[in-house]
Design a protein around this nucleic acid. Structure first.
Lengths: 199, 199, 199, 199
DNA sequence: AATGAATGAGTTTTCATTCAT
DNA sequence: TATGAATGAAAACTCATTCAT
């Protein structure tokens, strides 16, 4: 029975992986349920054994990703160290997702607004934002970061910058080779951390 | 005939305004052509005298908005003055759109990804980004801004921050009263301009 | 506009007539919306201009028929005369529907139960039953009919007998030539009528 | 092996009983095979060990019920006695089914038409009608019943009256307490019986 | 006998768009 | 210009049934 459960979980993952590829290629809306099933090599009816609807598939992708993101940010935060260094690590982790799983990022970037319609997703994203905010607040408390800036707003600004860089890569607006990625990391950290104005 | 043209233009605007309200309320996809016509108080067939398709209506909204945005950014750039001040003005203009026309911002934020699918839009957004980039480059040339940061990346980061603040307002994640708006402006300018790290 | 309305009403009738024929032939469930449209010679989308759903088409057929039935029964009742004679006329009118519009009777008989699921129909049928009941009550009050029998039950029994005769014709269980119809009328009236007459 | 067979028969009955309850509650069409299995407390695949299809389940319910009905009517007929008394007994047996197994009657009444599509059912019902007809014919031959009324038609009328009374109870149109049931029996017998008796 | 994962046929309905008036 | 009747493409989803285990 453990076997059966494991196998069922495998099938779920198989479908989820196929969905990411298909959504990345054609977009959520244009992707037909049959495309996902075909990509996964199963009959489309099977998708409805594992998910309530096509929507739930996307929702699951978002939820899983954000949960992981949240866990990563939190583990970085818990690891301690200078706030600036923590923010650099968060930036690095998030931006490197592009190299690790470009299809996933494509889906995330293209369907953000769809996800934000769904109340549940908002919670997940909000949780990640709060984690980022907490890092900033601790940095402010420790005197490492400016205390005259609202931590929540700062987290929103930081997150927006990251999302837009990813969007730039997805849309081909920005160079996404190794050098481009490294430069983006540095730029985000430099601009947000130290500012654009020379000192 | 001038009158007729004017009247035709009025009808177009009437339909566009109605479309913004309807798209803001139900989202582009859920909005039916009939809803827009009803909101505008005309028969739905009439929409096809002024627009080729429902898609073109959204496209027009984006194009017009971005053209205005671009013109504004360019006029700020042409007006001259310190780069930092120019960036502050751009930030102010973009963020105050929320107060001026929240429905428009709702549509823009909710349908960004759809817009980025449409090739024509990319140009408009890209043009606005280039204008922002130009401001930064001039600031770098004048020694007012750090020259070790890629201007294109900087424009992307800046734009991302603005978009995410608007998103925060749309989703109710951030306070959007006058004070909240003022604080957001200052925070964006402060963080991106001067950095989060105290000097 | 009167013309347009008339034409619209014609189209509705066209679709309703086609629906009766198709439902009669294949049954409501097996009948596809496309079959009705094809029978009517229009595109199936048009059906949705005139009816909310396939269900509403059937509902309309029932409602119209029962409304007519009710009107007929009431007009017979209002015409006055001996109760027995009124019941004979009602029987005649209902049974002769089979000759007048066999397809309609086929639909009515085959889909009775479906109609009784729909709350609105219940009212229509109930109204017709009440009219029949009223005829019986007046006959009882006038001493023409036995007063020791509950008029409501009597109307139900009478109606059941009529429905089953129609069912017999629909299923080919009973002869439905002119002679068969005449005999059925006489039999129903004889069995039910003489039973109601005091001795 | 007798045990195994008995157990298998039990499972069949278990499933049939569950099907009656589920069909009574949601109707045949809305009832899913899974619902029946769940009501019976077994996996839905098991249903296919005992029945060829969902349709066969309903068919079996009808067949069993009608076979019993037929047997009952025939045993009443064979017991002899005055025809009027026999008809009273038949009426009593059929109407009391409502008290004995309301769910079964609900299914029978709601799905009559569905059953009449199925050729096999027609035979069963036809057989019961013939039995009723035989009772009447014997009554006519014995001079106890009017001979000027067609026995087949009379059986149809009688059956229709019974079915409609049951329908009235199912739909809540008629009182179905003990008194209501008793009155219905008497009314049917009085109306139909006295009408058949020569004067 | 029992389970439930897997299959895929089958159909209503929506709604953007066209076009006769 | 304006109307709204007419068209038909397009796809998610349900659920009866099969079958490997």
């Amino acid at each position: 029975m453990a076997q059966r459960t494991a196998s069922a979980e495998d099938k779920r993952q198989l479908l989820l992986g196929a969905a990411v590829r298909v959504f990345a290629e054609k977009g959520y809306h244009a992707a037909r349920v049959g495309d996902i099933a075909e990509e996964a090599g199963v009959a489309y009816g099977l998708l409805y054994h594992y998910f309530r609807s096509k929507d739930e598939v996307l929702e699951t992708i978002f939820q899983t990703t954000w949960r992981n993101m949240l866990a990563t940010v939190e583990s970085i935060a818990e690891a301690g160290g200078p706030a600036g260094e923590q923010l650099r690590k968060v930036t690095e982790v998030i931006l490197r997702t592009w190299r690790r799983d470009p299809d996933l990022v494509r889906v995330l970037v293209r369907e953000v607004t769809r996800s934000s319609q769904l109340p549940r997703q908002v919670d997940e994203i909000a949780a990640a934002l709060r984690a980022l905010q907490a890092v900033i607040e601790r940095g402010q408390a420790a005197g490492e970061l400016r205390a005259d800036i609202d931590a929540r707003l700062a987290s929103v600004v930081w997150y927006g910058a990251l999302e837009e860089v990813l969007t730039g890569w997805v849309l081909g607006r920005l160079a996404d080779d190794d050098e481009g990625i490294a430069e983006a990391e540095q730029t985000v950290v430099a601009m947000l951390g130290n500012g654009l104005v020379p000192r």
